[in-house]
């Protein structure tokens, strides 16, 4: 196979597989946050920023995969 073709396949696999975990994690965070807000709507202003921060942290594993993908493609 040509190098370009292998690079394209590798990049696709890296980001595709790497996106699974964070997606599930963020879904869990969002559902739990919604549950908590639904149960106790007064604290929604406290929960929302916390939700964003934890989401950003969960997202980081996906971002690692993305960085690897970008390095494969453009590095």
């Amino acid at each position: 196979m040509e190098t370009e073709a292998v690079k394209a396949i590798a990049a696709g696999l890296a980001i595709g597989l790497g996106a699974i975990g964070p997606a599930i994690g963020e879904g869990i965070i969002a559902s739990k946050a919604m549950e908590a807000i639904g149960r106790n709507p007064e604290v929604s202003s406290k929960i929302t920023p916390l939700m964003f921060v934890t989401m950003a942290i969960t997202e980081s594993t996906g971002i690692y995969a993305l960085v690897i993908t970008l390095i494969i493609l453009f590095g």
């Binding site: 950003a56 942290i57 997202e59 980081s60 971002i63 690692y64 993305l66 960085v67 970008l70």
Partner: peptide
């Protein structure tokens, strides 16, 4: 690694 990749990855990916 985790601190730097998180910030760099997010912003660079946003640009791309």
């Amino acid at each position: 690694l985790s601190l730097s990749f998180r910030l760099f990855g997010n912003i660079f990916a946003g640009e791309v």
